[in-house]
Amino acid sequence: QIFVKTLMGKTITLEVELSDTIDNVKAKIQDKEGIPPDQQRLIFAGKQLEDGRTLSDYNIQKESTLHLVL
C-alpha cells in the first residue's frame, strides 16, 4: 500500500502494486475520492509523476507517501 496526502491534510491509503502506472493510481484515487484523474497531479520527492510511468520507475516503495495537488 501507499499513502496519498491531500493539501487539505487528509491521507488516503491505496492498495497498489509497484508495477501499477500513475494512471492506475489516479483511477484508484477517483474511486475513493471522486476526483477526476485529469484534475489530479501527483508529486513524489518534489517531482510531478507522469501518467504512463509506473510507481517503480520513480523508486516509490510500499508505505511511501505521495502528495496530491489539484
Rank of each mutant, 00 (worst) to 15 (best):
1 Q>P: 00
1 Q>N: 13
1 Q>W: 02
2 I>W: 01
2 I>L: 06
3 F>D: 07
3 F>S: 07
5 K>R: 07
6 T>F: 05
6 T>I: 05
7 L>V: 15
7 L>Y: 15
7 L>N: 15
7 L>T: 15
8 M>C: 14
10 K>F: 07
10 K>V: 05
10 K>I: 06
11 T>A: 11
11 T>H: 10
12 I>A: 06
12 I>P: 00
12 I>S: 03
12 I>F: 10
13 T>A: 05
13 T>P: 11
13 T>E: 13
14 L>N: 00
14 L>R: 00
15 E>L: 09
15 E>N: 08
16 V>K: 00
16 V>D: 01
17 E>V: 09
17 E>R: 09
17 E>K: 04
19 S>P: 04
20 D>T: 10
20 D>G: 08
21 T>V: 07
21 T>Y: 07
21 T>I: 06
21 T>E: 04
22 I>S: 10
22 I>P: 08
22 I>G: 07
23 D>V: 06
23 D>F: 09
23 D>C: 04
24 N>E: 09
24 N>C: 07
24 N>H: 07
25 V>E: 00
25 V>A: 06
26 K>D: 00
27 A>S: 07
27 A>K: 07
27 A>G: 06
28 K>L: 10
28 K>G: 10
28 K>R: 10
29 I>C: 07
29 I>S: 01
29 I>Q: 01
29 I>Y: 02
30 Q>M: 05
31 D>N: 04
31 D>C: 04
31 D>G: 06
32 K>Y: 10
32 K>E: 10
32 K>I: 10
32 K>V: 12
33 E>S: 01
33 E>F: 02
34 G>D: 09
35 I>M: 09
35 I>E: 12
35 I>K: 06
36 P>W: 06
36 P>M: 03
36 P>F: 05
36 P>N: 06
36 P>Y: 07
37 P>C: 10
37 P>N: 11
37 P>E: 06
38 D>T: 04
39 Q>F: 02
40 Q>C: 04
40 Q>V: 05
41 R>C: 10
41 R>G: 06
42 L>I: 07
42 L>H: 00
43 I>R: 13
43 I>G: 15
43 I>K: 15
44 F>P: 00
44 F>I: 03
44 F>R: 11
45 A>D: 15
46 G>T: 08
46 G>A: 04
46 G>K: 01
47 K>A: 14
47 K>S: 14
48 Q>C: 03
48 Q>D: 15
49 L>T: 13
50 E>H: 14
50 E>C: 12
50 E>Q: 07
50 E>W: 12
50 E>L: 11
51 D>L: 05
51 D>V: 06
51 D>N: 04
51 D>W: 02
52 G>Y: 04
52 G>N: 07
52 G>T: 04
52 G>I: 06
53 R>P: 12
53 R>H: 06
54 T>Y: 07
54 T>Q: 04
55 L>H: 00
55 L>A: 04
55 L>Y: 01
56 S>G: 04
56 S>N: 08
56 S>M: 02
56 S>D: 08
57 D>T: 12
57 D>M: 13
57 D>F: 13
58 Y>D: 06
59 N>F: 08
59 N>Q: 13
59 N>E: 13
59 N>K: 12
59 N>R: 10
59 N>L: 10
60 I>Y: 04
61 Q>V: 12
61 Q>A: 11
61 Q>M: 13
61 Q>G: 11
62 K>Q: 01
62 K>W: 06
64 S>M: 13
64 S>Y: 07
64 S>P: 15
64 S>K: 05
67 H>D: 15
69 V>N: 13
69 V>P: 15
70 L>I: 04
70 L>S: 15
70 L>D: 15
70 L>W: 14
70 L>V: 08
